[in-house]
Nucleic acid binder design. Structure first.
Lengths: 217, 217
DNA sequence: TTTCGCCTCCTACTCGAGTAGGAGGCGGCG
DNA sequence: CGCCGCCTCCTACTCGAGTAGGAGGCGAAA
């Protein structure tokens, strides 16, 4: 089955470049082009592409907003964000918008083509330069001491910690768990003692830095 | 310049497989093998490899601990984590330990070789299946309201927010910024008002969920 | 059965956080 | 110049967070 591609970029040179580049691949076909975000949203609906190459900086509507709208419209297109600038803000916002991947325009051509096939397959992808950045976000947390002995916490204490990490007050936690605020305080105290923290603020910081309780599932 | 590789895996079959696989590449040379973590640490120091293929599950010392030790010893080897299981916990812990990348043993051979070259070049890399997972961690945060108008905060207020997000108390923030705790409180109040939050705990949650102030730089 | 850990809840207390409201200094801008 | 926004600092107050210490119930393991 051929991969149907929509190229959304405001520079016609870039679009032509992709047509040329992808023309040689017989499993990939450029079915439409768009020169701004609004047009991309429209054509995504009409041409039902497998993959959308989406520039970020575009007139009318930028690529991030277009990405959000296309996915909100229940399209099953995979969106590959494409940009010259590898600025951090873009990356995270794009991923949050629901993009499946991220490549830089000056990545080598083979890599771009490989990227298209990868996301078409349903896999996600970040170009190496981008991946490096993402990894750096994880390659932190040089906390001293043991790796976080979450196991030392009882089930109830973990429940409480989870809710603390969501910003709830003791009273709110009590309501959630159907126990009194007093009891919540008891659990909080134990959590702080066991994890050697001063207050709930530090507990929140720890949870996030350690990647605990992230909405993975 | 040839890429010097150290293969650390407890199964000799796997090590032999890599020797075979990499033997055909004339820019890659397997300079040593290790069958447990302790041995990997030792040989990393003695053979000065460019890239270390590191299994996670190994007797004596696991690959994560070995990774930490090798990097703690100031080696400039790039470590590529290698495992059969693509369990989440491993990924994040491995990246936190300082690994440059992560591949699954059943990734196609070409991909493994490409991965070695990629990390040797200084780029970071996650195999597609893994990348998907990492992306999922970012593809959340459907916060309501405006995208977070950080700009609405004055420079000082941003300073304070940054320190709040690190778990500091008002007094500690005052020390850091050389201002009185009273003044810090004033800033905190303004931050909370502007961002429409109840207390500093929610501010911390917001910062992390929005990806603000992460130690990227 | 006795012991032990966990969960529950309580009072009484301390202390940091946050609010309210005001005030002075400083620099930019019309 | 005068206004205004920002930064600084203050008092006085309220309230939630966290500590200390104790207590009862319950289920599992010795």
């Amino acid at each position: 089955m051929t991969i149907r591609v929509l190229v959304a970029d405001d520079q016609s040179m870039v679009r032509a470049g992709f047509r040329m580049l992808l023309g040689n691949e017989d499993d990939i076909e450029v079915v439409a082009e768009a020169e701004n975000g609004a047009e991309a949203v429209d054509k995504a609906a009409r041409f039902d592409p497998t993959v959308i190459l989406m520039d970020i900086r575009m007139p009318e509507m930028d690529g991030l907003e277009a990405t959000r709208r296309i996915l909100a419209a229940d399209s099953d297109a995979r969106i590959l964000i494409l940009t010259t600038f590898d600025l951090d803000e873009y990356i995270y916002e794009a991923l949050r918008a629901g993009a499946s991947g991220f490549v830089l325009k000056d990545d080598p051509p083979e890599q771009l083509i490989a990227a298209i096939r990868t996301v078409a397959d349903g896999d996600a992808l970040l170009s190496p330069g981008v991946t490096k950045r993402v990894i750096k976000r994880y390659a932190r947390t040089p906390r001293p001491g043991p790796p976080i002995e979450l196991d030392e916490l009882t089930a109830r204490e973990q429940d409480v910690l989870r809710l603390i990490a969501q910003g709830l007050s003791n009273g709110e936690i009590g309501e959630q768990l159907f126990i009194s605020e007093t009891t919540v305080k008891t659990h909080v105290t134990h959590v702080l003692q066991k994890l050697n923290l001063r207050d709930r603020v530090q507990a929140v910081v720890l949870c996030y830095q350690a990647g605990l309780f992230d909405p993975d599932e």
